[in-house]
Design a protein around this nucleic acid. Sequence first.
DNA 1: GGCAGGTTACTCGGATAGCGATTGTCCGAGTTGATCTGG
DNA 2: CCAGATCAACTCGGACAATCGCTATCCGAGTAACCTGCC
Lengths: 164, 164
Amino acid sequence: MKMNEGIEWAIHCCSLLAHLPDDATLPVGALAEFFEVPQAYLAKNLQLLSRAKIVSSAKGPGGGYRLARKAEQISLLDVVQAIDGRDPCFRCSEIRQRGPSAVAASNYRKPCGIARTMLKAEKVWRDELKKVSILDIKELGIQETNPAQARKAEDWLTHVLRFP
Amino acid sequence: MKMNEGIEWAIHCCSLLAHLPDDATLPVGALAEFFEVPQAYLAKNLQLLSRAKIVSSAKGPGGGYRLARKAEQISLLDVVQAIDGRDPCFRCSEIRQRGPSAVAASNYRKPCGIARTMLKAEKVWRDELKKVSILDIKELGIQETNPAQARKAEDWLTHVLRFP
DNA sequence: GGCAGGTTACTCGGATAGCGATTGTCCGAGTTGATCTGG
DNA sequence: CCAGATCAACTCGGACAATCGCTATCCGAGTAACCTGCC
């Protein structure tokens, strides 16, 4: 079980976008430069965030991405599910209904105990991610970023940022 | 993020093996027949369980697999990690150390907040799986299996089971 | 000088290849149990 | 009839292909700004 690499990028991007003034946007190229990741692949992931209404996009010169909602209204779970999909990790193929001990399908109304247990554990995981918002992530980042890096980032932002 | 298909099989197999009398074994062929899954691939997964000391194997005629410990001493997490490995789903590639705002590596001693948050959620998930034992799964199965199926399964077992 | 039209450049969006991990399969190593033979 | 060796069948274990999803990329659609020419 391996999580999509783009999830890390997406969260970092959301955290960075949360630092932007209202209505300011950043194009994919700038985000890719800031994180030193492949621009085309990052674009694909931002596209997924756009579909999920987590970020909103603006085309044309001066365009780019910005958060579609306030940072405190975007949970980590939203981002993870936007990139990785909302299907559960564990997939029950109902093998209990196969083999020599199988009985009529009408006897299997409830999901089997194994699936219920696995899905319950996933729900606990999702609930944990739902508790954390992009604003929380942003503030965590501010706390643990040293001043030199913070100023370099701010300088960089002032160079690439463009207001509508 | 998609979980290995073999995990479902492995848990079902452990649950079935928990029904066996002490020292009785089941070969891969019997397990594959019971669940109607490809024998060769199931063998590969049982091999992983064997390496993890969750089941113990016996070669030769009359051999097969049995639980290496008591069912209540095997957690679902043990099985999941035996099949899927113990690496975390979320992998932090430290992209904060890249790009124009990067500073000397010595400034990044703690893992970044995003990684800590994601890994904490995974820990909650693991703790939930650790709470549940194969014995619990077995008893859940007994509760929700209808009598007809239970007898068919028991009949089948008496035909394929062999004692040492 | 102001405005309208066209052009240009910049941005996102979806469709398109490449690669690695999961899935699926096979054959050899090892062990047990039965069988056969000789006493 | 019994003991020992041999043999054969059965089992697991690791090494070997095929398929699917993730990774990576490119080109077209759309839009805003700009430039130019005319009024």
